[in-house]
């Protein structure tokens, strides 16, 4: 009986520690939020959205437009490849090929961002002479987003109920038609979730962009190569180490904006998930 009481006391201690850890984790998270919000939100003035970065401060218009342009181009590059490869995995691959495919995608998601950035720098920016450019930056982001998009599409397509496919086939639909009329519509919310998560990842990336997209003080143009593109994370990383209060304010504003964008996309993505999928099918 006594040992049971001792065990109970020890257990209570451990549970206390466990809850303390949870509280500490949430407190640290909130402190980061508070830090960014307190310093960033006051700096987030409306002019920032309409003026370009200039000198020691200026605005964020170029970085915002560049971020969206890079992420959108990255998505554009990855969307077909990501969904296509998931489609093959689910529809055509043998179980062994399926395992290998998923494994590859997982491994790709573990490649360090700087390795991708350096590879593209050497191969494209210098090697092919593209210079810092939209296409090089977008490709870097695309390599990052690919696993997220592909994994989400794979999971979503895998959940298409067999009865629906069989029903369609029984009604005389061609297999390709089944894919486009039955499987895709069913999987669409899951695929969109994956795209949103990939967008969140893309918005927050820095390392692969520094040596691919470069940086520009001006609004991005349509040029695929030879024109550097600005983006928000660059502002955070460079302007915080300038010795000017104005530069710091810009860095904080960019950080706050980034957090808003990333969390916004994550919340929308989670909304999709709650709405469409049971817990066990979620992707992160």
């Amino acid at each position: 009986m006594r040992s049971r009481r001792v065990a109970g006391a020890i257990g209570a201690l451990w549970w206390g520690l466990s809850v303390a850890c949870l509280v500490a984790a949430i407190a640290l998270l909130l402190s980061i939020f508070a830090f960014v919000a307190l310093r960033g939100l006051p700096a987030l003035r409306p002019q920032l959205f309409f003026t370009v970065t200039h000198g020691i401060a200026g605005g964020l218009a170029n970085a915002i437009a560049g971020t969206f342009l890079l992420v959108a181009s990255g998505l554009l590059l990855v969307i077909v490849v990501g969904i296509g490869s998931a489609l093959w995995t689910v529809e055509y691959a043998s179980p062994r090929a399926q395992r290998l495919m998923r494994f590859t995608i997982d491994v790709l998601s573990g490649v360090p961002s700087i390795v991708v950035g350096y590879f593209l720098y050497v191969a494209l920016v210098e090697g092919l002479g593209w210079g810092f450019s939209l296409l090089a930056g977008a490709l870097a982001l695309a390599i990052f987003m690919l696993p997220y998009v592909s994994r989400a599409a794979d999971l979503a397509l895998s959940t298409v109920p067999r009865e629906m496919r069989e029903g369609a086939v029984a009604l005389g639909a061609r297999p390709a038609t089944v894919v486009f009329t039955i499987a895709f519509p069913w999987a669409l919310p899951g695929i969109l979730t994956g795209l949103l998560i990939a967008t969140g990842i893309g918005l927050g990336e820095t390392a692969p962009l520094i040596y691919t997209a470069g940086w520009s003080n001006y609004m991005p143009t349509l040029a695929l190569t030879h024109e550097p593109v600005g983006y928000l994370t660059y502002v955070v990383w460079t302007y915080i180490s300038q010795p000017f209060a104005k530069s710091h304010a810009l860095a904080y504003a960019a950080a706050a904006l980034l957090m808003i964008l990333v969390f916004g996309t994550n919340l929308v993505a989670r909304g999709f998930v709650e709405y469409r999928f049971p817990r066990s099918q979620r992707i992160h």
């Binding site: 342009l69 554009l76 991005p220």
Partner: peptide, 9 residues
């Protein structure tokens, strides 16, 4: 994308 580019130029 197109809108952004238009904005850009």
């Amino acid at each position: 994308l197109a809108a952004l580019c238009a904005l850009g130029t």
